[in-house]
Design a protein around this nucleic acid. Structure first.
Length: 876
DNA sequence: TACCGTACGA
DNA sequence: CTCGCTCGTACGGTAT
């Protein structure tokens, strides 16, 4: 646009990354990637965007090792330290960062970033731009002119010194052009440019003030004062000329980028958010949220209805707005639905009073598209309506399409699929102590927007699902499962409060005893729950050997303490204290907190859209990690009881489902044989790996075999196995090799799946659940290793998850079809827990294994074990 | 309020 | 020679 000033910023990418790397401490994120250069680069970028407000922007990188300068001087940049691996691993992320910002970057074979910058800034000057160059390398100051400013990092990365021709004159008494002559005379140690020996900055400047250019100096050596200096100049004429040539930045590099292509674009906030999360840049994430809120949102049209005289639509997008994430207890604020290009709002009170509305909600021929079917079903159930006819769920669709995109709120999901007009809940309600319901118009507006957004996005999602062959997974598995889960959650599981409280009292007594024992042995009182204080007692006062350290100090984890047991009598007491403390705080006090007073029931929430493998997770409380391994903890299960008199708890679990899935996927004869013959798979593995007969398998051999089996499922590494069996890495590696030799097709599977992940970028489960694994091509050892294990594990764990989900849907149908009173209550990854009247036990013993075992057909049989009893504890 | 270390489950 | 086996949730302590 003519008349408006254009401002170009050019960044010397390598130089800034180096500066950031050395200026900041070596930060780590949770995946073990170093992030200090990325972080520094980002903060520099943010500051720059804010302060300079560029209209055009580009980052230049150095290409490869050799440049045209090496033809002039082989040793150019010789003697330089190799780039530390901790830095080079960060470069790909810096490029990701620039991509997310929609900032162009460029590198050119045989040229350095300097030359790209020199060429572009010269062009820009002709085209009427103002240009700012950012670098850590003072060489660049030679480019300075009336319209080109060169900013050089001073200390740190955001403290810049601005080099204009005036500043250069003030500082050196030279013009920008003379900077090259200066380098020619004095050289540059960091680039290994020789210069004239014995000539430093002072002498160079003096000479240039007198003669103007290097050439003039060399032509007029006679006039130079000082005998020694004359000699040096005379002897090193050629060296000086070559040095000048090396230091000269070319302004005519064959750069193919046009300035018009460098126009500053809006950042891709979704990508940025994802990247910042991955890197653990939480402070920057907060800033991002701030920026996003500034986007103006168009008001949408909606009207409030209080009663229904007109007929309700045959299809609508429906949304229920709640005040809290826990939909079992949250206030229901309002309901919106979108139909025939209009959006309506209805208050929960009016909804509950309207017979017509209730009829419509419950009519399964009137289809509804929702966001979070499970939440909606529960909310309507609380209003006394049975929501039916759900044909689409935005949250679940989004999860099925890509589970890695964090499903935190409606706004971000809508935006990801192209509907950017929904503000975040946080911006409408506020957060923390300031959270409150907004005035009614704003509330109605917000609720209506969501219903309208579902409508806007639905088709795109369906198209994606179809394209990925996931429509069946979505419609036939996840969507019906939401209803099943809603029923399970809503029913809840009964808890024997008195039993729990009694256990609490007993635990408290024991804890006090152990505590005083520990204080007595330690000779002082301290907080046993504080790893820091405990560390001081164990490793400083008692001088126990330090076997492992954490980021913050000594490790006092169970596996460390286990090894310290023989060293001191206090260890046993601490382990016991930890064990009981965990029971008390998490399982006694924690569970008591979430029991609903009126019913004595617990209503967990299953998160259906969280795990990357397709499993469910459970919160508030987590009922998928109730103790079982140790008897003392297992007793907690005695508090989980049937909710009706004379009923029992009935539990059924898949036996070795993951190994069976592995046997199926890999099609390994040896492994399949174990299951076809109904053998104990770990014993069979021990026989195959150690080459012994069944009778000769010792318990030690079986234990090792079992650990290898688990390891294989998890995506094994010799280190991991060595840890779990407490053997050396070498021994572990030998086990793994023996295992893979015994089951060659398992090895083939492991190799193939990694290859496939590299090819396609994702892996799949039996029912087409996908997990994208971009890190599989990473040059970073850590990331790639992690990705490879993910590729191996996800199809196994995910297929097992698919299977039990399918079984749950069929189980719910079957119970209904047979008009049984039995209720499915809980799912714990490979087991289902029911409560049932005693006279239905016999039927369940037949139906449950039948349904679960036939959920899918694999090349090995599925096997289900079951039992029942008066409490969950007794159903073992 | 957010993170860390620890510990529970499959 | 890196540095480490899958997926989760919840607690108390501690730093901010």
């Amino acid at each position: 646009m003519a008349g408006l000033s254009k401002k170009l910023v050019l960044i010397d990418g390598n130089s800034i990354a180096y500066r950031a790397f050395f200026a900041l401490p070596l930060l780590n994120n949770d995946k073990g990637i170093h992030t200090n250069a990325i972080y520094g680069f980002t903060t520099m970028l943010m500051k720059l965007l804010e302060e300079e407000q560029p209209t055009h922007l580009m980052v230049a990188f150095d290409a490869g090792k050799t440049t045209f300068r090496h033809k002039t001087f082989e040793d150019y940049k010789g003697g330089r330290q190799k780039t530390p691996p901790e830095l080079s691993e960060q470069f790909p992320f810096i490029r990701d960062l620039l991509n997310a910002h929609n900032i162009k970057y460029y590198e050119l074979d045989q040229y350095e970033a300097d030359d790209i910058i020199g060429t572009l800034s010269t062009q820009a000057e002709k085209d009427g731009f103002d240009t700012v160059i950012i670098s850590g390398d003072k060489d660049l100051t030679q480019l300075s002119s009336e319209r080109i400013r060169v900013d050089i990092t001073k200390k740190g990365i955001t403290d810049l010194e601005q080099y204009t021709p005036a500043h250069i004159n003030e500082k050196y008494g030279l013009t920008p052009d003379q900077i090259i002559d200066m380098k020619g005379l004095m050289g540059d140690a960091s680039d290994n440019i020789p210069g004239v020996p014995g000539v430093g900055e002072k002498t160079a400047i003096k000479l240039l003030k007198q003669f103007g250019t290097l050439e003039n100096v060399l032509d007029s050596i006679d006039e130079v004062s000082g005998k020694k200096l004359k000699e040096k100049l005379e002897e090193n004429k050629q060296l000086a000329e070559m040095s000048k040539k090396l230091a000269t930045i070319t302004r005519t590099a064959p750069v193919e980028v046009k300035l018009s292509e460098l126009e500053k674009q809006e950042a891709n906030y979704d990508q940025l958010t994802k990247l910042y999360k991955e890197l653990g840049f939480n402070s920057l994430l907060d800033k991002l949220d701030g920026e996003e809120e500034e986007i103006e949102l168009k008001d949408i049209k909606w009207e409030e209805v209080t009663d229904f005289t007109d007929e309700l639509p045959s299809h609508a997008e429906l949304y229920v707005e709640l005040y809290d994430v826990n939909y079992h207890t949250a206030d229901i604020l309002g309901i919106a639905f979108h139909a025939d290009q209009k959006t309506y709002f209805i208050s929960p009170e009016h909804a509950a009073e309207s017979e017509a509305f209730k009829k419509w909600i419950e009519d399964d021929s009137k289809t509804k598209s929702v966001y979070d079917a499970k939440e909606s079903i529960v909310a309507f159930d609380r209003l006394g309506m049975k929501l039916q006819g759900i044909d689409f769920d935005l949250l679940i669709a989004s999860y099925v399409i890509d589970a890695s995109e964090a499903a935190d709120d409606f706004s971000s999901i809508a935006k990801r699929h192209g509907a950017d007009a929904v503000p975040t809940d946080e911006s409408v309600y506020g957060k923390g102590a300031k959270k409150k319901v907004p005035e009614k118009n704003e509330l109605m507006q917000h609720t209506a927007r969501k219903a309208a957004a579902i409508h806007a996005i639905k088709e795109t999602c369906i198209t994606s699902l179809e394209k990925n062959e996931q429509l069946e997974l979505f419609e036939k598995l996840e969507l019906p499962l939401a209803t099943v889960l809603a029923e399970m959650e809503r029913k809840g599981v009964q808890v024997d409060i008195d039993r729990l409280k009694d256990m609490g009292v007993e635990l408290k007594k024991k804890l006090e005893e152990i505590q005083s024992d520990i204080y007595r042995i330690a000779g002082e009182e301290f907080n046993i729950n504080s790893p820091k204080q405990l560390g001081v007692i164990l490793f400083e006062n008692l001088k126990l050997p330090v076997l492992k350290k954490t980021k913050t100090g000594y490790s006092t984890s169970a596996d460390v303490l286990e090894k310290l047991k023989p060293e001191h009598e206090i260890i046993d007491h601490i382990l016991h204290y930890r064990q009981l403390g965990k029971l008390q705080s998490t399982y006694i006090e924690g569970l008591l907190k979430v029991i609903h007073d009126d019913t004595n029931k617990i209503h967990t929430r299953y998160n259906q859209v969280l795990t990357q493998t397709g499993r469910l997770s459970s919160t508030d409380p987590n009922l998928q990690n109730i103790p079982i391994r140790l008897e003392e903890g297992r007793k907690i299960r005695q508090a989980f009881v049937p909710s009706e008199k004379d009923w029992v708890m009935f539990a059924a679990d898949y036996s070795q489902i993951e190994l069976r899935v592995l046997a199926h996927i890999s099609d390994d004869e040896g492994l399949k044989e174990a299951f076809h013959q109904g053998m104990d798979v770990h014993t069979k593995t021990a026989m195959d790996v150690f080459g012994v007969s069944k009778e000769d398998v010792t318990s030690g051999m079986r234990r090792h075999a079992k650990a290898v089996n688990f390891g294989i499922v998890y995506g094994i590494s010799d280190y991991g196995l060595s840890q779990s069996l407490d053997i050396t890495r070498k021994e572990a590696a030998e086990f793994i090799k023996k295992y893979l030799d015994s089951y060659p097709k398992v090895k083939e599977y492991m190799d193939d799946i990694i290859h496939e992940a590299k090819q396609k970028g994702y892996v799949e489960t039996l029912l087409h659940r996908r997990r994208y694994i971009p890190e599989i091509t990473s040059r970073n050892f850590n990331l790639r290793g992690f990705a490879e294990r993910t590729a191996m594990n996800t199809p196994i764990q995910g297929t097992a998850a698919d299977i039990i989900k399918k079984a749950m849907i069929e189980m719910a149908d079957r119970l209904k079809a047979e008009s049984l009173q039995t209720r499915m209550l809980l799912q714990v990854h490979d087991e289902l827990i029911f409560e049932c009247p005693k006279d239905e036990i016999e039927k369940l013993e037949k139906i449950v294994p039948e349904v679960m075992e036939s959920a899918v057909e694999l090349s090995v049989p599925l096997k289900v074990d079951y039992s029942y009893g008066n409490t969950w504890y007794d159903a073992k």
